[in-house]
């Protein structure tokens, strides 16, 4: 019994300590204005995390938009309400699916890569040799990845929603024959710039920060062995996904919930 309690306490303190280390990491990396010479590092990370994720984002966005439209159609056509597909599609994507699915895909596609990369740098002592040369790895390695993640996830989510709505319109208007005007007019009638687009963007920004932070931290804090890196990569994806889903629920509760 006592051993069990001690174990729980130990685990709790470990978790608390890793939160602390993650916080310090975030603070130290962001507390730094990049010099002119470092600028290209940031561009390169935006390329790695953002541009290279475009493929999977566009593909999954299109198929999700198409599938949603098909499902909406089969249900709503029974009530003759297929004209509100446009609105339903836009609301679902802007409020929930756009930010959340992008967050999950980003964690899998880019977050895991960041974790593995930083973890391997640590395991092969690249980080410590940088320190030896007087270069702070937090500024040179961690900060560009964090900022790139902060920037890329919202942009990817915007692209995701736009492509998915386009995919929905392709399926709905061109294949199923929903009225073109009704599709867009219903959407424009019901979608509010602040409550739908704006709050969606807020969600994306939060996810961007959380996913990049977790990925970078997991890599930076991993046990520098091959098992350590693999565990850190797994943790990075698992924790990021859980964080995205849990935060999404909380934010939806606060933003759209009944208590105001």
């Amino acid at each position: 019994m006592l051993r069990f309690l001690r174990l729980v306490g130990q685990r709790g303190l470990d978790v608390l300590a890793s939160f602390g280390r993650a916080g310090i990491l975030l603070f130290l990396s962001l507390w730094h204005v990049p010099g002119r010479r470092e600028w290209s590092l940031y561009v390169k990370q935006v390329y790695q995390l953002g541009v290279m994720s475009m493929g999977i984002i566009v593909l999954s966005a299109f198929s999700i938009g198409a599938v949603l439209t098909l499902q909406f159609y089969t249900q709503l056509a029974r009530f003759g309400a297929q004209d509100s597909i446009g609105l339903g599609l836009a609301l679902v994507l802007l409020r929930e699916l756009g930010p959340v699915v992008t967050g999950l895909l980003f964690a899998g596609r880019a977050g895991s890569a960041v974790t593995a990369e930083i973890g391997l740098m640590k395991a092969t002592d690249q980080l410590s040799s940088m320190e030896m040369m007087g270069v702070d790895p937090l500024h040179r390695i961690v900060a560009p990845r964090l900022w790139a993640g902060f920037l890329c996830l919202p942009l990817l989510a915007m692209i995701f929603s736009a492509v998915a709505i386009w995919g929905g319109s392709v399926v709905g208007i061109d294949w199923l024959g929903i009225d073109d005007g009704q599709f867009w007019a219903g959407m424009q009638e019901g979608v509010e710039i602040g409550t739908d687009v704006g709050k969606g963007v807020v969600k994306c920004v939060v996810f961007g920060v959380v996913v990049s932070w977790i990925s970078v931290y997991q890599g930076y804090d991993c046990v520098p062995t091959s098992e350590g890196i693999s565990a850190a990569t797994t943790n990075s994806v698992v924790y990021s996904s859980i964080a995205v889903l849990a935060l999404d629920f909380l934010m939806t509760l606060v933003m759209y919930g009944e208590f105001k």
Binding site: S40, V43, G50, A90, S161, A162, M187
Partner: peptide, 28 residues
């Protein structure tokens, strides 16, 4: 490096355009 810069630029423009699309076309 030039290719990377160009594609990053295109990515940023695409993201901005997507936002404009969402604001203008979707929320009307």
């Amino acid at each position: 490096i030039r290719t990377i810069e160009i594609s990053v630029g295109a990515f940023l423009v695409a993201g901005a355009l997507a936002l404009v699309f969402l604001v203008v076309r979707v929320s009307g």
